[in-house]
Computed example of a mutant assay.
Amino acid sequence: MRLVARAVLPVVVGLFVAFIVAGTSVHGPLLTVVGVVVALAHGAALWWRRTHPVLVMGVALVGGLVVQLVAPSAVFPYAGLVAVWALAAARPPWISLPGLGLLLGLGSVNFLTTSVDDTMFVMAVSILPWALGEVVRNRRVAVEQGARRAVSEEQARIARELHDVIAHSLTVMVVQAAAADDVFDLRPDRAREALRSIDATGRATLDELRRLLAEVRPDVHGLGRLDELVAPLRAAGLRVEVRRDGDLRVPAGVDLSAYRIVQEALTNTLRHARASWAEVVVRNDSGVLEVDVRDDGRGGVGGVGRGIAGMRERAAVLGGTVDAGPLPGGGFRVHARLPLAVAS
């Protein structure tokens, strides 16, 4: 269904422009056939608009120019409008603006065949898809920056908590241990008192650490919060589907690690893959929690860097594994298997 939806726009644009060329060509049959073939070809090129936006923009511009020369009444560069949207959504302005400039130049060809008002209208309309694509790109960048800020703030908060919980307690324990060592032979009663103080301080510290870990474990981040995790990605234009299968009441360590693996995989999808769709599947398969994250982006890019290594380290701590790599039909997949028995 997803592939069908992705193919609708190229088919519609290609057939529509080909119909215009066949019905309005001012040249002979041979050039009309050439125009129809080019119309179908530059429409079909829109299939790769998300994965190769720069190349598709070039094909749309060349094809649009041929169409304009064969059938001047076509007026609108339909494929170019779609291509400039995809280009602006995937690339920064210093790349997309030249594409917009060339599209405006293509629209200016209408000055030779139609009225000035119509030509100016076509050129003005050409700016709209670029602006919409730029809005989508900015939203994605904002989500990525927000995620980075959230991670940094969480790390800073945990660091402060750890300092407050541990630093004072360890200092007291070290001092008490040194005191016990000094009086161990001469005043064993004082040594025992110091050891009891160390024991009490250690237990209190463990209680504080348990409280801290409870704050950063499943109550805040866990599989139960996946919908909240994907909400800002959906707002940024990435279609994310989440499916759950089986009993997902899993040990805390597995719950948190699975959440982090999904988070990192989707972050890579948003940041690197230039995907339009992603799917997250989490299932309990006979005592093994499986996490499967797929997207339709540029296969291979998501696995570069420290993200995949970090996921593998998380899984290895639990005795699990993470496999990541491009899919045969395009896109990227992260698949994790986390045993529940070892974690328990």
Rank of each mutant, 00 (worst) to 15 (best):
V56P: 05
V67I: 14
V66I: 11
T51C: 03
V62Q: 05
L69M: 12
L55D: 09
V59P: 03
M57W: 05
R50Y: 14
Q68T: 12
V67E: 15
L61Q: 03
L61H: 01
T51S: 14
V70P: 08
V59I: 12
V54H: 03
R50D: 15
F76W: 14
V62I: 12
F76A: 14
R49K: 08
L65C: 10
V67N: 14
L61E: 04
G63T: 00
M57R: 02
M57N: 08
G63S: 01
H52I: 00
V67L: 09
V56G: 07
V59S: 02
V67C: 13
L55V: 12
G58V: 10
F76H: 13
V56Y: 03
W48H: 10
T51L: 09
G63R: 02
A74F: 06
V75A: 10
V67Y: 11
V75S: 09
G58M: 06
V67T: 15
L55E: 12
V62F: 11
L61K: 00
A60V: 01
A60L: 01
P77W: 06
L65A: 14
R49D: 10
R49F: 01
Q68L: 08
A74T: 15
V70I: 11
R50T: 14
P53H: 06
H52M: 06
P72G: 03
Q68V: 07
H52D: 10
V59N: 04
Q68C: 04
G64H: 09
L61S: 02
L69S: 07
W48L: 09
V59G: 03
H52G: 02
P77R: 01
L55A: 12
A71M: 06
A60P: 02
V66Q: 11
G64V: 05
L69F: 13
S73L: 09
V56I: 01
L65G: 13
A74Y: 07
M57C: 04
V62Y: 05
S73H: 08
V75T: 14
A60M: 00
P53W: 07
P53M: 04
V70Q: 10
G58F: 06
A60W: 02
V56M: 01
V66E: 12
M57E: 09
V54Q: 08
P77I: 00
A60F: 00
R49C: 05
S73K: 05
M57P: 02
W48V: 03
G58T: 10
V70F: 06
W48G: 00
V66L: 07
A71T: 03
P77T: 00
A74P: 08
V59H: 01
V66T: 13
H52L: 06
P53T: 04
T51Q: 15
L55T: 13
R50V: 08
G64N: 10
A60N: 00
P53Y: 06
F76S: 13
V67W: 12
L61T: 01
V70R: 04
L69N: 11
T51A: 11
L65T: 15
P72H: 03
G64R: 07
P72R: 03
H52R: 13
A71E: 11
V56C: 04
H52Y: 07
V54N: 00
A74C: 08
G64S: 11
V62A: 14
P72Q: 04
P53E: 09
V59W: 04
L69Q: 14
V67F: 10
T51R: 15
P53V: 03
V54D: 09
P77Q: 07
G58H: 08
V62D: 11
Q68A: 13
V62K: 05
S73N: 09
